[in-house]
Design a binder for these strands. Structure first.
Lengths: 209, 209
DNA sequence: ACCTGAACACCGTTCAAGT
DNA sequence: ACCTGAACACCGTTCAAGT
């Protein structure tokens, strides 16, 4: 038996903190955010139920760390959508909205985590605040650029337009997440289509003609 | 001691089922939906933890009964708003939206319960399905009436317009509930104002001019 | 017919004790 | 410094037993 290498690591993990976050992200993605329990995460990693408390003061603290990560992924997705969108300011706004609801659709567990802010310590986590603020700025900047280009009516307040766009996107994403669509006549399997069509309707109304 | 009167009732309640629903509604309203636990409800009523299971097969079954009641109250509120709104079709649509977000704002716990459909057995509860469907019809009918009166552009699909209006209202209500507004530049105490202003912006865009 | 008491398998969290 | 084991106060749920 060697004196060095893998056996050198302590009980189980070199970086349990990191492993806990990853396992939580994985659990949320595969089985939903409500299945992310400290004991289950610990079980996945083969450590005791008390082990996570060496790295996170509470369940909320772990969820907050997971939220930071999830929000970064959402931001990445939206920036990518923007990068692919080309130059037309209105198309950029559409890309941003589609990027948002698309990510929420494909990553329901992570979407739920960044949504449910009573499970997150936003105030005590500057990184999370900054990340969320950055997404808001991205939306507002895109709205302002569209106004400057004459593609949105200039008399509407940019902040309010951005809030409306976000409310519609968040509303659609949550309606899907909370299973409201069946009640609203959206055929199963056509949710993405309905969300996109509804967002397009909004954007066409926002555009001056 | 009399042979009749109050002492005649069994252990505690004449109608424990009804009392459980009322206590749950009360708890949700005062301390939030997540505090509605079967054990806590039982405690409030002075019965054992097992007693609720005589009347509801599971927590979900109780929440569903509570959801039926909450949805009825929401419907009542929206119908009242409509009744007060007068004849202008656009004003009626505005009243409907305001009624929705206003109720959500004032009854956060009940709003949360009708929102979180994974905690409700919608499929197995015709009364709930019917109640929710009625609210959708109310919105669509109001949209159609506004179109017929020439106050909304007739070329837009009524179903899609109704979905957009609902997505915006639900999005705003949930953004508030999930504490997103601070991140979106809405000053504390001015949430209702921001929600109304945003809905008015949407309605002004929906209107033909 | 309706309710209780005790039990079981889960949680989050704490703390003394181990390496 | 980091982790375990046992404990505590909570859950939802079940079931035999009481009235």
């Amino acid at each position: 038996m060697a004196l060095s290498a893998p056996e050198t690591r302590p009980y189980h993990h070199g970086d349990l903190r990191r492993a806990l976050i990853d396992a939580a992200l994985d659990l949320a993605e595969r089985h939903g955010a409500e299945r992310v329990t400290l004991r289950e995460v610990a079980r996945q990693l083969g450590v005791s139920a008390a082990a996570p408390f060496r790295h996170f003061a509470s369940r909320k603290a772990l969820m907050t760390a997971v939220g930071v990560e999830a929000n970064e992924r959402l931001a990445l997705e939206m920036r990518r959508a923007l990068a692919r969108a080309g130059a037309s300011p209105l198309a950029r706004l559409r890309a941003l909205s589609r990027g948002y609801v698309g990510w929420a659709l494909r990553h329901a567990g992570h979407f739920r985590i960044v949504s449910a802010r009573d499970e997150l310590d936003v105030d005590g986590t500057p990184a999370l605040q900054a990340g969320m603020h950055a997404l808001r700025d991205l939306t507002e900047d895109t709205v302002r650029a569209a106004q400057a280009a004459g593609e949105l009516r200039p008399d509407d307040d940019a902040e309010r337009l951005a809030l409306l766009a976000r409310a519609a996107a968040y509303g659609l994403a949550r309606m899907h997440h909370d299973d409201h669509f069946r009640q609203w006549g959206v055929a199963p399997g056509r949710e993405a289509e309905a969300m996109e069509g509804t967002l397009n309707l909004l954007l066409s109304m926002m555009a001056r003609r």
